[in-house]
Structure formats: structure tokens, C-alpha cells
Simulated assay, not measured.
Amino acid sequence: MIEFWLAEENLFFSAAILLMFAIGLLQLVGLSDFGPDFGTNIDTDIDAGADLDSSGEGLLSFLGIGRLPMLILLVLFLSLFGLVGLVGQQIYSGVFDQLLTPWLAVPGSAAIAIPLTGLLSRPLSKIIPRDETTAIHIDMLVGRRGVIEIGKAETDSPARAKITDSHGHHHYVMVEPGNEGEILNQAEEILLVRREGEIFKAISPDTAKFLS
């Protein structure tokens, strides 16, 4: 059995099964929950108001996207892809006494696993809650508080800041002082007051209280 799993023709399927178990293990011990600040920045924010045409919606529905959390969909696909491939190779080996080349086995298994993933996502969606949409437009960060994380923000010399949105997600943006001559030091709390291109203007919350 081990030789069958480790056969060159089955490595893709064995790797998919192992990856599926690895994701499950990480999720179980909490290591996969790094939070939204992992890889989230000004360049990757998505406008939640973007619309899809009917063909796009139909394709996403066919793939099961939107019915289940993406991590669950990934685990489901990996398990189906690995099982379909290994079972298919077992049947092929029993008939032809050899394993099918991965150049044919891999795309063939994927072609079966993808629609199966979408099909099984329907009953699973009644048991497992779907992802909540928490994507925001970056302009919605204006008015949010954060902290200078790296550097010192001065006029024409921005620093990197971490901002927390209304969903508790972290975003990393470049900020400059909103007031001429003001300096925002590292670890200092800030308030975003406006956006100018890729740069946000910020002031100290104490300054905001004074102005109000």
C-alpha cells in the first residue's frame, strides 16, 4: 500500500491527501488562524460592491464558491481529488496491470473532483455556515484608528501603520501627518482623516479631541 501511495504516478494524489490532513491539523490546533492581518494591505483590499454577470455567478455557484468557507471548499476538493485519483489508479492498475501516467490521471481526476466539490457543497452548506463578507473599500478606513508600526511619519516621509477596520481586521497602509510640521512617532496611536492617492493622512487622537 505504501509503495502504491508513493508511486510516481500517484504523488499528486498522495500529496493532496496529506495536504488535506495538514490543513485539518493546523485548523484543529489553531495555527491556521493567523487572522486577517496576514497578507492584508492596501493593495489587496476588495471593493465589496463589485458585481458579477450571470455567467460569472453561475460558474461560482457550480464550483460551490459562496456556499462554504473557502478553507472548507479547499479541504473538500483536496480530499475528492486525492481519493478519485487513487481509486482510479487502483482500478486502472487492476485492469491493465500498470498505473496511468499522471499527465492523464491528474487532469482527469481534477475534472471529476471539481464538479463533485460543487455538488457536495450544497448539502454541506446546510450544516456548515458560509463565510461572512467582510471585504471593505479602502476609503472606509478613513476615520479608523491605528498605530504607527514601522518608522516615523513626517510630511513627505510616510511611515507604515496598522489600522483596524470595523470587522476587527488589520490593514497596513502608509501614512503622513495630516497637519503640517506634525510628527507621528513609532508605536503612537493615530486617526486617519483622509486619503490622498496611496497615502493616508493621519493625526493624533489627542489632536482630534482638541479640535472638537
Rank of each mutant, 00 (worst) to 15 (best):
R144F: 06
Q90S: 15
D131L: 01
Q89I: 12
I114P: 02
Y92K: 11
Q90N: 12
L83D: 07
A135L: 14
S109K: 09
G82T: 04
H137F: 04
L86G: 09
S79N: 14
G88E: 01
I128A: 05
L124Y: 03
P129A: 08
A110Y: 12
P123L: 08
L124M: 11
D131F: 05
L100A: 13
Q90I: 06
I112W: 05
I138F: 10
R145A: 09
Q89R: 07
I148H: 13
P115Y: 00
L86S: 03
P115Q: 09
L80M: 03
L86N: 05
I148T: 09
L86E: 06
L86A: 11
D97A: 14
Q90L: 15
G88C: 10
P102F: 09
L80I: 10
G146M: 01
H137R: 14
L83G: 12
I114R: 01
G88P: 06
I128V: 14
P115I: 06
T134G: 01
V84L: 06
I91K: 13
G85Q: 03
R145I: 09
A111I: 14
Y92I: 14
Y92M: 11
I112D: 04
R145M: 07
L86C: 03
F96T: 12
S109Q: 04
D139M: 03
A110R: 12
V84T: 14
V95Q: 13
S109I: 00
A135T: 14
G146T: 02
I128E: 04
Y92D: 11
Q89F: 11
V106N: 09
G118F: 08
I114V: 15
R144Y: 00
V84P: 05
L100R: 09
V147Y: 07
R130K: 14
G85L: 08
T117C: 02
I112N: 13
F81N: 11
S125A: 10
S93W: 13
L119D: 00
L104A: 14
M140Y: 07
G82D: 10
H137Y: 07
